[in-house]
Simulated assay, not measured.
Amino acid sequence: MKTETVDGSTLETWSADEVAKALEANEIVLIDVRTPQEYMFEHIPGALLMPMAFFDAAKLPTQDGKRIVFHCGSGARSEKVARNAISAGMDPIAHLDGGFGAWKAAGKAHMGTDMGTGAPKSVPAKS
């Protein structure tokens, strides 16, 4: 994990492996800040959706017992949202380095779309 101090608060940048391990252990709340269309096409199971366009830090859950980790497609939007959360007083806050693209590149399990039928399909982790 990489860390950066932003206005006296800690911004953490987590790898796909770190996020997967913490999500499996139920230690984090993973929040997807992509659009609803992106989320419906493919997403990380268990991730909550809070699109960046509608982001309101005041509506975030507390971090009592669980860290909040944001993710998007590439890491750019999630970093911006994480910085907004820090400005709203959340500390520490984290985001997924490389976003969903890094998650898939790391071979992590996710929900996708069957292009033949349009139905959701589980994409297993690659060994």
Rank of each mutant, 00 (worst) to 15 (best):
G89D: 07
R83I: 00
G8E: 10
T3I: 06
W14I: 09
C72S: 13
P51Q: 01
P124V: 11
A57S: 12
R34G: 11
P61K: 08
M115H: 11
A47F: 07
A47D: 09
K59A: 15
G46H: 05
V19F: 05
M40I: 04
T62H: 12
T10H: 05
E38R: 07
L49T: 06
G8V: 13
L60A: 12
N84F: 06
V33I: 12
L30T: 07
V69Y: 11
G98W: 14
D91Y: 08
A119Q: 12
K80D: 08
I28K: 06
A47C: 01
P124R: 08
I93Y: 04
P36K: 06
A106T: 04
A76Q: 13
Y39P: 08
G116I: 04
N26C: 07
K126M: 14
D91K: 10
M52F: 07
P120N: 10
I86V: 14
C72L: 01
K59S: 13
R77V: 03
D97P: 00
G118R: 10
T113P: 00
K104G: 03
A106H: 04
W14K: 14
G99P: 05
D56I: 01
V29E: 15
T13G: 11
G73W: 04
T117L: 07
G107A: 09
V19P: 09
D114M: 01
E24W: 02
F41N: 02
L96R: 07
K59H: 06
A58S: 15
V6T: 02
I68R: 09
V6W: 02
H71E: 08
D32Q: 03
K121W: 01
A125P: 00
D91T: 10
G101K: 12
A94D: 04
K2W: 09
G118W: 05
V19D: 05
D7W: 02
A109C: 04
S9W: 06
M50R: 11
E79N: 15
G101P: 01
T117A: 10
L48N: 08
V19G: 10
A47N: 09
P36V: 12
K80L: 13
K2R: 14
T5I: 11
K104V: 15
L60D: 13
A20N: 12
L96K: 11
D56N: 13
G75Y: 12
F54N: 12
G107L: 06
